[in-house]
Amino acid sequence: MTRPVTRATFLSGLIGLGALATAPDAHAARNSDAETYVQTNATAALAALGNPNASSTQRQQQFQRLMTQFADMQRIAIYVVGRYRGSLVEDTALRREWQETFQAFAIATYEDQFENMSGAAVRVVGSEERTAGRDVVVDSQVRPPRGEPMRVQWRVLRSDNGWKVTDIAVGRDGVWLGQIQQRQFLAQLDSNRGDIRALMTDLRGRTTTMRQRIMARS
């Protein structure tokens, strides 16, 4: 005689199916050195954003110093202009000016936008090597003081100066912020016939606006 499937049995089956889905995937090669680098420096940078013992000026300077040490601003500055990098390769002075302008814009953006992340707890949960010992994606969970924890991935490259972050991906699906930035700049450069000086003028204006907002807040 066939026994009817009770609601509880059916539910147990569904939950069991779900439990199977939690089985971990195989892990690729990890890099503990890169993981330690991110764990230490990401925590410090986020702490600097909300250091209550520092004046706004000191906080800004501390954050800038940490960011220029933690992130490879020069490399990122070249990356975000994508196919328009040619003029920067040819013109050293222009490249230098662009890197300064982009760095100021990027740091102001971080300060302005990530204020609510100050004091967030970073917990590195793994990593995967793209190039052994040189190019690694470090996976972490970042828990802000308010709000839900979120997944943050850090692309770190190792050069003579040690590890540096070159891009960050946020969210469960991993949205790379550097790629979004590159698309924005490329759209702007496409529309102005590749005029990097015009882009710099725009970024300086936006940086000034953000700095004024940050100072007004503090």
Binding site: A28, Q60, Q64, R65, T68, Q69, D72, M73, Q74, R75, I76, I78, Y79, R85, R96, E97, Q99, E100, T101, F102, Q103, A104, F105, I107, A108, E128, E129, R130, D135, V137, R155, L157, S159, D160, T166, D167, W176, Q179, M200, L203, R204, G205, T207, T208, R211
Partner: peptide
């Protein structure tokens, strides 16, 4: 991770800090 974009292989010191990127 192999599908992630390459970054230029550059070797240069950090730029002098300019908080406003050269704005007035």
């Amino acid at each position: 991770v192999q599908d992630l974009p390459d970054f230029d292989d550059i070797d240069e010191a950090p730029v002098t800090n300019t908080p406003n990127g050269g704005a007035s």
